[in-house]
C-alpha cells in the first residue's frame, strides 16, 4: 500500500462514537462521593510547607546556638572564671598567657603556659612548662590546678632515635668530625597543647625536640633534633672562642634556597673548613645567618 493511500485510509476511517452513559454516571458519582478530597491538598501542602520551613528554621537556629553561639558563650564565661582566680593571676603576672581552652560537658580546661616557646615558668623556685586549669562550669569556680613539669629526659626509645638522627644527618657529617661522640641527650621544652581523648583532657607537647651534645677532645657541638620530623634543625659550636650557630635549612627553606645557578651551590651554610677564614667571636650567630642568607640571595 502506498503511503498516501494509507494516510487517506487512516483519515477517512469510520470511527466508533460510543458512549456508555451508565459508566459515565457511576464513575462521576464514585469520584465525587468517594475520591474528591474533603480538604484541598494544595492548601494542606502549603500549610505543611509553611510549618516545615518554620520547623527547619528553628532547627537551624538551635543547631547554630548549640554549635556556635553556646560554645563561644561558655568559653567567654570560662575565661572570666579562670582570669579571676588569684593563683592564675600570679602565673599571668609572671609572663604566662592563657593559651588554649576546651569544654567537655560541665568541665572546662584551660592551658596556661609561657608566652615564648622553650621558656619555662618560674613559680617559687619551681620551673614549670605550664599549668592545666580545670573549671567547674556548673559551680562557676576553678576546681583544680595541675602543674606541668618540663620533660627534661627522654625515654630510652626517644633517646636512641635522637642519637640515630644526630649521627645519620648529612649536614652533621659535613659539619662535625666523624670521631666526635654523643655525650648527652636531653629534651627541649616545646609548646604545649590540649588534647581531648574521649571525656578526658591531656596536655601534650606540640613537637618533640631534643638537644644532642657531640664531643671530641675539648671541642663540643650542640645539635637540635626534631624527633617528630626526624631531622637536625640546628648545629651550634659550644667552644667559647669559636661559638657560632649553623641553622640547617628546613624542608621549606631548602626549596627556597634551591640555587638557580650551579655556582650558588657553594653557598650552602656549613662550618668553615681548615684554612678558610673563621668568623670573628664578636659576630653572633644571627649575623652569620644573615651573611649566609645574603650570599644565597
Amino acid at each position: 500500500m502506498k503511503k498516501e493511500d494509507l494516510i487517506k485510509k487512516l483519515e477517512r476511517a469510520s470511527l466508533p462514537e460510543i458512549e456508555i452513559t451508565s459508566h459515565r454516571e457511576r464513575l462521576k458519582k464514585d469520584l465525587l462521593e468517594n475520591y474528591f478530597p474533603t480538604k484541598n491538598k494544595w492548601e494542606t501542602f502549603l500549610m505543611f510547607r509553611k510549618a516545615a520551613f518554620a520547623s527547619l528554621a528553628v532547627i537551624i537556629l538551635l543547631l547554630a546556638s548549640f554549635y556556635f553561639i553556646y560554645p563561644q558563650y561558655t568559653l567567654a564565661k570560662m575565661e572570666k572564671i579562670v582570669l579571676a582566680d588569684p593563683q592564675i593571676k600570679e602565673f599571668l603576672e609572671k609572663g604566662s598567657i592563657l593559651k588554649e581552652m576546651k569544654v567537655i560537658g560541665n568541665k572546662g580546661y584551660a592551658l596556661i603556659s609561657p608566652a615564648q616557646e622553650g621558656e619555662l615558668l618560674e613559680i617559687k623556685q619551681e620551673k614549670l612548662a605550664g599549668v592545666l586549669v580545670e573549671v567547674n562550669l556548673k559551680e562557676k569556680r576553678v576546681s583544680r590546678i595541675e602543674r606541668i613539669t618540663p620533660q627534661i629526659f627522654l625515654d630510652e626509645k626517644e633517646e636512641e632515635k635522637a642519637k640515630e638522627i644526630a649521627k645519620e644527618n648529612p649536614e652533621v657529617k659535613k659539619s662535625i668530625p666523624k670521631e666526635a661522640e654523643i655525650s648527652e641527650v636531653r629534651s627541649i621544652p616545646s609548646e604545649l597543647e590540649l588534647i581531648q581523648k574521649g571525656e578526658e583532657i591531656e596536655v601534650s607537647p606540640k613537637e618533640k625536640k631534643a638537644t644532642v651534645i657531640y664531643k671530641l677532645n675539648e671541642k663540643k657541638w650542640e645539635g637540635r633534633i626534631n624527633l617528630k620530623e626526624e631531622k637536625v634543625e640546628e648545629i651550634e659550636i659550644l667552644d667559647e672562642d669559636e661559638k657560632e650557630n649553623i641553622k640547617l635549612p628546613t624542608t621549606t627553606d631548602q626549596e627556597e634556597l634551591k640555587p638557580s645557578t650551579p655556582e650558588m651551590k657553594t653557598a650552602t651554610p656549613t662550618i668553615p673548613s681548615k684554612g678558610e677564614p673563621m668568623m670573628q667571636p664578636s659576630e653572633n650567630s644571627d649575623v652569620l645567618l644573615k651573611k649566609v642568607e645574603m650570599e644565597l640571595k
Binding site: K9, A13, S14, L15, P16, I18, E19, I20, T21, S22, H23, E25, R26, K29, D30, N34
Partner: peptide, 26 residues
C-alpha cells in the same frame, strides 16, 4: 459502586459492543 437506578448497564454494553463491531474497517 452500585449501578445507578433505572439504568441497564448490561444492555448498554451489549448495544455498545454491537455498535463497535459495525466499524470493521476501523
Amino acid at each position: 459502586s452500585e449501578p445507578v437506578a433505572n439504568s441497564d448497564p448490561l444492555g448498554e454494553i451489549m448495544r455498545a459492543q454491537e455498535e463497535l463491531e459495525k466499524h470493521k474497517d476501523f
